[in-house]
Simulated scan of single mutants.
Amino acid sequence: MTSRVTLVSPTIGPSLRQARFDDDGSIDAEQAARARAAAGSLPRAVHVVVSPSVRCRETAVALGLRGEDAPGLAALDVGRWRGLTLDEVAAAEPEAVARWLTDPDAAPHGGESVKDVCTRVGNWLDAAAETDGRTLAMVEPEVVRAAVVHALGMPTGAFWRLDVPPLTATELSGRTGRWNLRLGHPLDTPDAPTDR
């Protein structure tokens, strides 16, 4: 059985614009309008799931998606760094930030390590491989990174080397142990180029 999983990244939120560790804030009217403009551009799916973040839920609504909550696809837990800017954390804890960005097992913020999020998302992806038909998942960029790392059997350290732009879809097809990847392509919006 071949499964298809489409991972959709949400619009930009205020935290991302400010290089701030996500504080689970809402998207603004402009970004909601961008998502509404892309409504209908996603493939039909048998199963739709949404990460529990406000940004993912609001983007899903703007795209016209109705899906079930997927706690296993939650954003990377950054513990006490949540809501702070990267500059603030780097000034206060430079060694901790350096360790976090280079050691996938490190969680100096008291939250989740990159290895942990890759394992959690990998477990979800393995289960999704048993779903007949397409699964569409609205998830934070770090969840897309973790899924790609797992699907391609990449070293966990590659996590930070993958960029996931907002309002893009990354497609995985295949089955556990052998996935094919179609890298993030922009959703069809009036101001986004498309390769379709």
Rank of each mutant, 00 (worst) to 15 (best):
G122Q: 08
L152M: 13
L65N: 02
W179F: 10
D24A: 14
W100Y: 15
T11L: 10
A60C: 08
R34C: 01
Q18D: 11
L162M: 12
G153S: 02
W81S: 09
V48C: 13
P186G: 03
V144M: 11
S173T: 15
D22Y: 12
T189A: 15
T119M: 07
A158R: 08
M138F: 08
A92R: 15
T102E: 10
A106N: 10
P165D: 11
P186N: 08
V5E: 01
R145H: 01
G64T: 11
V61M: 05
T119S: 07
G40M: 13
R4A: 07
A98Y: 02
R134V: 15
E30M: 08
A129W: 07
G25A: 05
A107N: 08
V144G: 08
D126L: 06
D132S: 14
A19C: 03
P165Y: 05
G67A: 11
G79R: 14
H47D: 14
P52K: 00
L16E: 02
A137Q: 02
D163H: 11
L172G: 01
E171P: 03
R145P: 00
A92C: 08
E140R: 09
E142Q: 13
D126K: 05
G64Q: 13
N180Q: 13
V117P: 00
L84E: 09
A90T: 15
H109K: 12
T176M: 03
V121K: 00
S113H: 05
A74M: 04
A19Q: 04
A151G: 03
S15N: 12
V97G: 12
L183A: 13
V149F: 07
A74C: 10
A74D: 05
G184R: 03
W81G: 11
F159Y: 15
E93W: 02
E140C: 10
G83Y: 06
Q31E: 15
V143D: 00
V144Y: 04
T6P: 03
S113K: 06
T135W: 01
T85R: 11
L16K: 04
R4C: 09
A98P: 11
R36I: 10
L42A: 08
P43E: 08
P190Q: 05
S26K: 10
D132C: 07
T6V: 14
G83T: 09
H185M: 05
D105N: 06
R57K: 14
S113I: 12
T6A: 11
G79V: 11
D22A: 10
R175M: 04
I27Y: 02
F21G: 00
A29H: 08
V121H: 01
A19V: 07
P108E: 07
A127L: 15
A62D: 02
G122F: 09
T131S: 06
A75L: 10
T176R: 13
S113M: 12
P141S: 03
R4K: 06
